[in-house]
Design a binder for these strands. Structure first.
Lengths: 128, 128
DNA sequence: CTGGATCCATTTAGATACTG
DNA sequence: CAGTATCTAAATGGATCCAG
């Protein structure tokens, strides 16, 4: 999605780009939900399908692969019949989650501001 | 992009959804760059076009409107000829930025892990 | 059970011409 | 200068079928 941070064309981008990369890593409809589920306890594929209602098989697999590729999830295959695969959160993912709850704290503190800002903005847009 | 957090269909989603909403607020290629620029000092429209190389007028305007709607940017119009419009970061945006740099700290600490994880993942995928 | 592969609808974003 | 409107290209996501 985002270009690499090499050869930033402005100092603003040089500062913003690494942040954008992290955001992108957990952006999208599904990543955080899967992360949350896997942090609670190791989860199986089908279990995730139920925990994250509305996700398609395709998106579940894609999201799992991306999270695994970034070292946020660990995939363990049990060579049984039928196959059993478990996804568990890595220590790295748990730390990241800590920062995300920090963001959540910000959101809760500013929720009134945001709601008011949106209301003001939408009303003013309506008037025009 | 994301549905509202009303009537979560699972407890995992109930926990994840508010986080997803915040992430989405600053996700995408451009939001963070614009935020960074506006935090340094109030910036004008054309100035942003230069500070954020590659952005189109359309995306610049759309992103500005979204950030303004969420109360992260304040838009000030000076009724001069030619017109002058300045965008400045709100206190709320500055606090949010603090949390984002927290994420950045995480990224820097785990960058080696991530690079290694990706390398391992890609090599193993290649072997298959 | 755990996916991979394919096809198609939807969404999103870039280019650019036009305006007060 | 600071946008808006329109058209088009590209990415994204869902549905479905197939396989170890």
């Amino acid at each position: 999605m985002s270009d690499d941070c090499v050869l930033p064309k402005s100092d603003v981008q040089a500062e913003a780009c690494p942040i954008v990369q992290i955001i992108d890593r957990v952006a999208g409809k599904w990543s955080v939900s899967i992360l949350v589920a896997a942090i609670r306890k190791p989860v199986r594929y089908t279990e995730l399908e139920r925990s994250v209602p509305g996700i398609s098989r395709r998106m579940l697999t894609l999201t799992l692969r991306n999270l695994e590729r970034d070292g946020l999830l660990e995939r363990t295959v049990y060579p049984t019949v039928p196959p059993k695969v478990e996804y568990s959160a890595t220590p790295s993912a748990r730390e990241l989650y800590g920062h995300l709850t920090g963001l959540l704290e910000w959101a809760e503190r500013h929720q009134p501001d945001i709601i008011e800002a949106r209301k003001a903005y939408d009303e003013q847009a309506l008037a025009a």
